[in-house]
Amino acid sequence: MAGLLKAVGGLVIGIAILFGIATLFIGSAAGVAAGLIGALSYAFSGAVIFALGLMLEHLEAIRRECDRQSDMLTDLLRKMPKTDASPRGPGVSPSISWQNRLSNSRISRHGATPPHGGAPSALAIKS
């Protein structure tokens, strides 16, 4: 389809050029201006058709490349080991683990121990 649009656009541009040349040799002074305006509008229409063909060709190339990259990613995911690399224990939610890591980092920076195994006290955070 992209090739067809490019061919039709090129054909319209070619006919517009021939029409402009014929107008220059055949027409009178008033007819030449009108003929050249018509030829330019046909050439512009052909350029738009040709550009649509180029855009369609570009989109087809992107689609092919996307399919190829998707296949490569699928193959890569199949080759990866099935081990779980997360340091959390089973049954620990990510938010709890994140909160524990945050409180542990505050404790180690300030040298205070949290009461009841929870977050550090306000005095330990401010000091």
Rank of each mutant, 00 (worst) to 15 (best):
M1V: 08
M1I: 04
M1L: 07
A2H: 13
A2N: 14
G3V: 00
K6Q: 07
K6A: 01
A7R: 11
V8D: 04
G9I: 02
V12G: 01
G14N: 03
I17L: 15
F19C: 04
F19R: 09
F19S: 10
F19Y: 15
G20F: 00
G20D: 03
A22L: 14
A22K: 13
F25W: 07
F25V: 14
F25Q: 08
I26S: 01
G27Y: 04
G27K: 11
A29C: 07
A30V: 12
V32W: 08
A33Y: 06
A33S: 09
A33N: 08
A34C: 03
A34K: 10
G35C: 03
I37R: 08
G38C: 01
G38F: 02
L40R: 01
S41V: 10
Y42G: 12
Y42Q: 06
A43K: 04
A43V: 02
A43H: 03
F44T: 08
G46H: 00
A47V: 03
A47M: 02
A47Q: 02
V48A: 13
V48G: 06
V48F: 13
I49D: 02
I49N: 04
F50C: 04
F50M: 03
A51E: 07
A51L: 09
L52Y: 09
L52H: 04
M55G: 05
H58G: 06
L59P: 01
L59K: 13
E60H: 08
E60M: 05
A61T: 12
A61L: 10
I62E: 12
R64D: 15
R64H: 11
E65D: 15
E65S: 14
C66M: 14
C66I: 13
D67W: 01
D67G: 07
R68S: 12
Q69C: 07
S70Y: 12
S70L: 13
D71A: 15
D71R: 13
M72Y: 10
M72R: 14
L73F: 08
L73S: 11
T74P: 01
L76W: 05
L76F: 06
L77Q: 09
L77E: 08
L77P: 00
R78A: 11
K79M: 07
K79I: 03
M80L: 15
M80G: 12
P81C: 06
K82C: 03
K82R: 15
D84P: 00
A85I: 11
A85K: 08
S86M: 01
S86N: 14
G89A: 14
G89D: 10
G89V: 05
P90L: 05
G91S: 00
V92A: 01
S93F: 08
I96R: 11
I96E: 14
I96V: 14
N100W: 06
L102C: 06
L102I: 09
S103W: 14
N104D: 15
N104R: 15
R106T: 02
H110Q: 10
H110C: 12
G111K: 07
G111M: 01
G111P: 04
A112L: 04
P115W: 03
G117Q: 05
G117T: 01
G117N: 07
G118T: 10
A119H: 05
A119F: 05
A119Q: 07
A122K: 03
A122L: 05
L123I: 10
L123Y: 08
A124I: 00
A124E: 08
I125M: 09
K126P: 02
